[in-house]
Simulated scan of single mutants.
Amino acid sequence: MSKPRIFTVASAIFATVLLLAGCAAAQPAAAPTTQEAGGSVIAELGLEGLDARQVVETLDALPVADRPDGLTTSITAHQVTLTDRHGHAEELALPEDIVYISVAPYLSQTHDCYFHSPTGCIGELRNTEVEVTVTSITSGETVFDESLRTLDNGFVGMWLPRDIDASISVTHEGRTATSTLSTAGDDVQTCVTTLQLM
């Protein structure tokens, strides 16, 4: 009698660990495979006609409860990769002059992340108002300054100019977190989860 209950409790604990882990550490993107008859991963998702930037924004804005089963995604400096539950992958090139950086400010709970996964990452502060400012360290120019609401996945996404080193500041209800980030090079960290609001 007790074995099923132990299994249920263990399953619940494992599921919670996976949820809190979010996108976890960076994983290598799966190699694209030939699509079966019926179309691409983009077509499967109903995203035909959108450019790569719109695909990224649409996926990031998906409510967590509506994430397609088995879909994995990864954003690097130059592309977004989508892999469906059958292992079919599709890569879309991102604009050459900007980089998508996604940030999850937090109060007490975070996870390791390097390449943002719009359909895998979950931050602590979901649907929360924040102020975000990004300033070029070299020029002192403010390149991003907006009041935003974190998406249902707990992140805010920003398209920033390529090849800059910058400072970032996030404020929420009188608490602020600051750090640095870079959009230079081919191995840009697109997922920032180290901004603890103090």
Results as ranks from 00 to 15, higher is better:
2 S>I: 13
4 P>A: 07
6 I>T: 06
8 T>A: 14
10 A>G: 11
11 S>E: 08
12 A>W: 06
13 I>R: 08
14 F>A: 15
14 F>S: 13
18 L>W: 09
21 A>Q: 09
22 G>D: 06
26 A>N: 08
32 P>R: 08
34 T>Q: 14
34 T>G: 07
37 A>R: 14
38 G>D: 12
39 G>F: 06
42 I>K: 04
43 A>Y: 07
45 L>G: 04
45 L>V: 10
46 G>P: 00
46 G>F: 03
48 E>Q: 10
49 G>Y: 08
49 G>W: 05
49 G>S: 01
51 D>P: 04
52 A>E: 09
54 Q>G: 09
55 V>I: 14
59 L>V: 00
61 A>M: 06
62 L>Q: 11
62 L>C: 11
63 P>R: 02
65 A>H: 05
65 A>D: 12
67 R>E: 03
68 P>F: 04
68 P>W: 01
69 D>Q: 07
71 L>W: 01
71 L>S: 02
72 T>E: 11
72 T>P: 00
73 T>I: 12
74 S>I: 07
75 I>G: 00
79 Q>C: 06
80 V>K: 01
83 T>N: 01
84 D>W: 04
84 D>C: 03
86 H>D: 14
87 G>H: 07
88 H>W: 05
89 A>P: 11
90 E>N: 11
91 E>P: 10
91 E>V: 15
93 A>Y: 01
94 L>S: 03
94 L>T: 08
96 E>W: 03
96 E>T: 10
96 E>Y: 06
99 V>L: 02
101 I>F: 07
102 S>G: 15
102 S>L: 14
102 S>P: 08
103 V>L: 10
104 A>H: 02
105 P>Q: 12
105 P>N: 14
106 Y>L: 05
108 S>H: 15
109 Q>V: 15
113 C>R: 04
114 Y>E: 02
114 Y>V: 10
121 C>L: 11
122 I>Y: 12
122 I>Q: 13
122 I>F: 10
123 G>F: 00
126 R>M: 08
127 N>L: 15
127 N>S: 15
128 T>Q: 15
129 E>L: 15
130 V>G: 00
132 V>G: 02
139 S>I: 03
140 G>L: 08
144 F>Y: 15
144 F>C: 02
145 D>R: 09
146 E>Q: 13
146 E>T: 13
146 E>S: 05
147 S>K: 14
147 S>G: 12
147 S>V: 12
149 R>Q: 09
149 R>W: 04
151 L>V: 14
152 D>S: 09
152 D>G: 03
153 N>I: 07
154 G>I: 06
154 G>L: 05
156 V>R: 01
157 G>W: 00
159 W>E: 07
161 P>L: 12
161 P>E: 04
163 D>T: 07
164 I>W: 10
172 H>Q: 13
172 H>P: 03
174 G>S: 09
174 G>H: 11
175 R>T: 02
176 T>M: 10
178 T>C: 05
179 S>D: 15
179 S>L: 06
182 S>R: 09
182 S>K: 04
183 T>S: 05
186 D>A: 14
188 V>A: 05
190 T>S: 06
193 T>V: 09
194 T>G: 11
195 L>P: 03
196 Q>M: 13
198 M>R: 15
